[in-house]
Computed example of a mutant assay.
Amino acid sequence: MFNCTIPSIVFQEVPNQVSLCFCITGCQIGCKGCHSPELWQETHGHPLTNQTFTDLLTQYQGLITCVLFFGGEWAPLPLIEKLVIAKEHGLLTCLYSGEEVVAPQIIQHLNFLKTGSWQQEKGGLDNPKTNQKFIDVQTGKNLTHLFCSGEQHAAT
């Protein structure tokens, strides 16, 4: 099990999806300039049990199309459990990881994967110079371009 902050509905992190986003605490990367350094503390937030997760998915049923995790790859078993539950609810899944490589046993449960640490000089997914990548796991297609210059809206 791991902790997370209060989940939120997000619209831009996964192109063309309405996502319920969970920020998982205990990040071990510690990127300089991180927008949420409180997520480095494993004890920050509240425990995300499978029952609590299921209850939230039921609460938002029909309103969301995707479940997004900011982190959690450092706790693969509880993350995989949540990904499986999300799929059972008919939802797409996405992981935002600061790592370059994510374990295959996690990837097999994802529809989308963002990799790469935050590097202030290179910016995020919306910067053409970014080191980060947003991948459609099923096709292997790099979708990072959808975050630049309004292309996300053009793709709908």
Rank of each mutant, 00 (worst) to 15 (best):
N3R: 15
T5N: 02
P7V: 03
P7G: 06
I9C: 04
F11V: 08
V14T: 07
P15D: 07
Q17A: 13
V18I: 15
S19V: 08
L20A: 10
C21V: 02
C21W: 02
F22R: 05
I24R: 07
C27I: 06
I29S: 04
I29A: 05
G30W: 00
H35P: 11
H35E: 00
S36D: 15
P37L: 10
E38S: 03
L39T: 15
Q41H: 06
G45D: 05
G45H: 06
P47I: 02
N50G: 14
Q51I: 03
F53D: 05
F53P: 07
T54Q: 14
T54K: 12
L57P: 08
Y60V: 05
Y60F: 15
Y60E: 09
Q61L: 00
G62A: 10
G62N: 03
G62V: 09
G62C: 11
C66G: 05
L68N: 13
G72W: 06
P78E: 14
K82E: 00
L83M: 09
I85K: 06
A86P: 00
K87Y: 02
H89F: 15
G90M: 11
T93C: 10
C94S: 14
L95H: 03
Y96C: 06
S97H: 11
E100Y: 06
E100F: 02
V102A: 04
V102N: 03
Q105S: 04
I107M: 10
Q108S: 09
H109C: 01
F112C: 08
F112I: 03
K114Q: 15
T115P: 02
G116Q: 04
G116S: 09
G116Y: 03
W118K: 04
Q119C: 10
Q119M: 13
Q120T: 05
Q120N: 02
E121M: 03
K122Y: 14
K122N: 14
G124N: 12
G124Q: 12
L125W: 12
P128D: 02
K129D: 14
Q132P: 03
K133C: 01
F134M: 04
I135K: 05
V137P: 11
T139F: 08
G140D: 10
N142D: 15
N142S: 08
L146H: 08
G150K: 05
G150Q: 07
G150N: 06
T156Q: 09
